[in-house]
Write a protein that binds this DNA or RNA. Structure first.
Lengths: 225, 225
DNA sequence: CGTGCAGTTGAGCAAATTCAACGCTTGTGG
DNA sequence: CCACAAGCGTTGAATTTGCTCAACTGCACG
């Protein structure tokens, strides 16, 4: 649960880092100028429709953003891991809520500060734009996942998490089955059953429920896109 | 099928136009500096993985962007109506393909020109950012639609189209049932059946298959979010 | 007048959900 | 230390939803 703590690489993993230098430079501004805050498991970082005064960067732990629909269903918009930036909005209000999935540390920086910097410094403006585009790509990927079958969704999710968790074929999931289900638009039972099925066809191994070992990426990938 | 031709309002409808002035100003730059091009029904405007050299603004008609997955399924990313801007990408390549749904006119402007302008002119840069954020919001909405039931998806789609088509409760759909299905992640049969059901509960009327009259927005909205 | 395309409708089937029960782990209080 | 409740995950059975396959209609176009 705290296995991510040491990881302080500046760029979101899994993104080919074209512009790595400028990214490093201006994203580190966030860290340099921001204030570090700790959030306990399930603590709210911000709520839907609250003023979006800050940008956030995950230092350790994991964050989920979500919306609760009128009928009570919860849709998770994204999971953010160490190095990821979240919380920027088009308007002045947050369109999602954000919570810590597990005990997490987050760096905050005033949005106004960034906006002000961006107005004067082109590289900051470009960085802001890049982060937004990255987010756009991420959401577009999410759309492509949501039209697939349950098995494909879970496979895609596991591959995505593996890509974002550097290192081996082993992934420690910080989030619950319910979180995964709400992210993939499935029920918790379907996620569970699908995992079991993937294990039974030797695509993955499940040493424990939160620990997934990718045993056959080809099989998982075939289910992908 | 050509009912959209006259409509040349500059802003995408349905978005609260904060910054309307600057939007108008810099979006009209696109029109002033761009070249007008006509595309026949089903003509390709650009293809996936082609260099993204241009930005596009719909003058008349309707555009769809889409991806074809490895298994042959087609996912439509978005429909663009007169006034909408499309075709901007994070990287240098298009991540979707774009086609004219019906005979359409589109204004093109070199991406390099816009980028160059943005570097010197802050208002253009801000506009580029705003358009990107708008797109991000649109895709996030799309995600929320895709987790719902078939009936809710179709209802949401019709409300969205009605919001974007100014005027009455009557919507002329430029796209086929297949397009709608591929946008909503459903089959053509399910879309058709759902429409029929919505008609039978008096939520809509179907004078013809491409013409939808919203008769009871409350019913449709209840199905929404 | 026939052909092809777009849309609708029906019947059977497969996939995912719902409802329910159960196991395992963790934390709490007697 | 044990008992017990709560949370999380898994599994099973019944049900619902949407998909597949197929037939059929209306319409535009040659």
């Amino acid at each position: 649960m705290t296995q991510n703590a040491a990881q302080t690489r500046s760029l979101r993993t899994g993104v080919p880092n074209r512009e790595a230098v400028s990214s490093e430079a201006s994203e580190s501004i966030i860290e340099a100028m921001g204030t570090r805050m700790a959030f306990k498991r399930n603590a709210e970082i911000y709520g839907e429709n609250e003023p979006a005064d800050y940008l956030y960067k995950v230092a350790s732990g994991a964050i989920r953003t979500y919306k609760v629909l009128t009928d009570g269903r919860r849709q998770i918009g994204a999971f953010y891991l160490p190095g990821d930036v979240f919380g920027f909005e088009n308007g002045d209000l947050h369109t999602f809520s954000a919570e810590a999935i597990c005990d997490s540390k987050v760096v905050l920086i005033r949005r106004g500060t960034i906006i002000g910097l961006a107005a004067r410094d082109n590289s900051v403006a470009r960085e802001l734009y890049t982060v937004t585009c990255r987010e756009l790509e991420r959401v577009q990927e999410h759309v492509l996942v949501l039209i697939k079958s349950a098995e494909e969704r879970v496979a895609s999710f596991l591959l995505e998490m593996a890509k974002r968790t550097p290192g081996a074929n082993q992934v420690q999931l910080p989030m619950s089955r319910q979180d995964i289900a709400d992210y993939l638009g499935l029920t918790i039972e379907t996620v569970s059953r699908t995992m079991t099925r993937l294990e039974s066809v030797a695509a993955i191994a499940l040493p424990s429920s939160r620990c997934i070992v990718l045993r056959n990426r080809a099989t998982l990938g075939r289910l992908n896109s």
